[in-house]
Amino acid sequence: MELGVVVIDDRCGPHAVGLLAAARDRGWKTRCFLTDRGVFLLEDESFRALLDTGDAHFSICELSVERYAHDGVSVEGMEDQIVVGGQYQNAELVRNCDHVVVF
């Protein structure tokens, strides 16, 4: 089983992080794509902890990072943990996952 999680709103962060952690605990492969306000999860400690485990594939929309850079969004120091790309990464997630949840 491979689960894809797309996060477009940081207000759903706790739900997305909980789902990713639960999937990991079940031994499922996971992919996560952050776009729009979802990029603010980079500032969330529980999300960063998921990045540190190295158990999942994480990608982020470069345009969204640029859009919210003035609000402090940055991938600095996380380049080895998260793919900075575009909507292709979102499409790849959808193509490769058995189920996709959008928050």
Rank of each mutant, 00 (worst) to 15 (best):
Y68S: 05
L63T: 06
V83Q: 11
L42G: 05
G72H: 02
S59K: 02
K29L: 14
L63W: 10
E43V: 06
I82F: 13
H57N: 03
C12W: 03
G4M: 03
V17C: 09
V6T: 02
S74Q: 03
C97M: 11
Q89I: 06
N96Q: 15
L50C: 15
A21K: 11
C12D: 06
V17D: 06
R26M: 11
A23K: 00
N96K: 12
S46H: 14
L19A: 13
H57T: 04
D25M: 14
V100K: 09
R37C: 03
A16M: 09
C97E: 09
R67C: 00
A49V: 15
V75M: 13
E66N: 11
F47M: 12
A23P: 00
M78W: 12
R48H: 09
L42P: 03
L34P: 07
F103T: 13
D80E: 08
D98R: 09
V6I: 15
R48Y: 15
G4W: 03
T35Q: 04
Q87M: 15
C12M: 07
C61L: 09
M78E: 13
H70S: 00
D80S: 15
E76G: 12
V7E: 05
T53Y: 08
V84F: 08
R48D: 11
E45C: 04
A21Y: 06
I60Y: 09
V84Q: 11
V101W: 14
G38C: 11
L34K: 03
A16D: 05
V83P: 05
V75W: 04
Y68D: 03
G38F: 01
M78H: 12
H15K: 06
Q89P: 01
F103C: 14
G27L: 07
H57G: 02
L63H: 08
D44H: 11
V100W: 13
L50D: 12
E2W: 00
Y88V: 14
S74G: 07
R37I: 03
G13F: 03
H99F: 10
A91Y: 10
L3M: 08
P14M: 03
V39C: 01
M1N: 00
C61A: 13
G85E: 10
D52A: 15
Q87P: 11
